[in-house]
């Protein structure tokens, strides 16, 4: 269990060290801190979006130790010592990930709010299954809702990314 200090109201604040997109951050958090809020508010890494906040929409999808999870349902304390990748971690050396390139090429995002989550779900898929079928792509992003209902271009872009990598 992480070290903690008790504030003047008797609330404990725990010291956690979490690797986000390759950088280690050490912060004090309360037990009720959720990973999505930790990323957005404590670290100011706001690419990860909040929408339903109950595990239905997938807007807050991040990779936790390489696996896609809804960061709105993860306690920050349970991530102490672990590794998180957000949408900001996809590009390296100012070069976009192939999935991001294909999202642009296919004009896949419409309003774009679901795009960070879908990018992370797609990234997780292609890391484990570099050449998925269309059904596997649809299944991989089934936990991500797009209110513009623009799923077709996302599926095409992800399939194209798989073919191009």
């Amino acid at each position: 269990m992480a070290n903690f200090v008790v504030d003047k109201n008797g609330i404990k604040r725990y010291l956690v060290t979490i690797k986000v997109n390759g950088n280690e951050y050490t912060k004090m958090v309360k037990a009720n801190s959720l990973l999505v809020n930790f990323l957005r508010e404590d670290l100011d890494i706001t690419g990860t979006k909040k929408a339903c906040e109950q595990g239905d929409c997938g807007a807050c999808t991040v990779l936790l130790d390489g696996k896609p999870v809804n960061s709105c349902m993860v306690l920050t304390l349970s991530v102490d010592g672990r590794e998180v990748t957000t949408v900001e971690g996809l590009a390296s050396n100012a070069k976009l990930d192939i999935i991001q390139e294909k999202f642009i090429e296919h004009s896949a995002p419409q309003c774009g709010f679901c795009a960070p989550g879908i990018l992370m779900a797609a990234k997780a898929l292609l890391m484990n299954n570099p050449h998925p079928t269309e059904l596997e792509v649809r299944e991989a992003i089934a936990g991500n809702l797009c209110r513009c209902t623009g799923y077709v271009h996302y599926v095409e872009a992800i399939l194209d990314a798989a073919d191009s990598q």
């Binding site: 997938g58 809804n70 991989a140 089934a142």
Partner: peptide, 9 residues
């Protein structure tokens, strides 16, 4: 059950 993200948790 549910979707991939939820099944991972």
């Amino acid at each position: 059950m549910a979707n991939n993200q939820v099944r991972n948790l």
